[in-house]
Design a protein around this nucleic acid. Structure first.
Lengths: 108, 108
DNA sequence: CGTGTAAGGAATTCTGACACG
DNA sequence: CGTGTAAGGAATTCTGACACG
């Protein structure tokens, strides 16, 4: 039954009404955060938004930050930073691997 | 982002239309398999069926077995068996732990 | 800026039934 | 037995707008 991977975390299958129930946010709020580029639901064939569990987690995070008085523009920057950090981390890993390969005179 | 657990596997959040897309089954078929006690969706407040990713996996399994000419009654028995095996497995584990505890004169 | 609401249309879901076999 | 379909109603979702601030 269990998969071990978190493929289900990113699969966009949840409709907006269910996301409301899970997050406590209104449809209006959820659509607005999309407009402000904080979440990126997919669309079903005829145009209904579909969210992943990961999106739900992000939204709950957003809800907390908004309660603390943060603005969507700040949240946008913050998420940008997280993206960059992830990217930096991957880059660093690649560079270190490169150095190791050089040291051992290997090729990838 | 990743959780490590598969809590999302069992959370019932997917509506029947999306399940159709994921499984290739018709609404009629999915509702019928429910009637035959092969799947157990939850209901939202006003009565709409909600499925988990686990349910989707089960349905894909059912779809295969049905193609092979198996009947819902047989599938029902098979799933019953799997339940029993899981139960047996848990029981055996408990018994072994009991024997170990007895051997070492411990208490849980 | 962030969110509520009324508006109207289009698509979704539900149940019980008729049908074929 | 397993599944398709037409039927009618109720709830969902969508967009663009008015509103307050």
């Amino acid at each position: 039954m269990a998969t071990g991977s978190d493929a289900y975390l990113y699969k966009k299958v949840i409709s907006i009404g269910t996301v409301c129930e899970l997050t406590g946010l209104s449809e209006r709020q959820i659509r607005y955060y999309e407009k402000r580029k904080l979440i990126f639901p997919e669309r079903s064939e005829r145009g209904n938004r579909k969210y992943s569990f990961s999106d739900v987690e992000t939204l709950m995070d957003i809800a907390n930050k908004m309660e603390d008085g943060m603005q969507t523009s700040e949240l946008r920057k913050e998420m940008q930073n997280k993206q960059n950090k992830r990217y930096d981390s991957k880059l660093k890993e690649t560079m270190i691997r490169g150095q190791l390969n050089a040291y051992f005179n290997k090729r990838e």
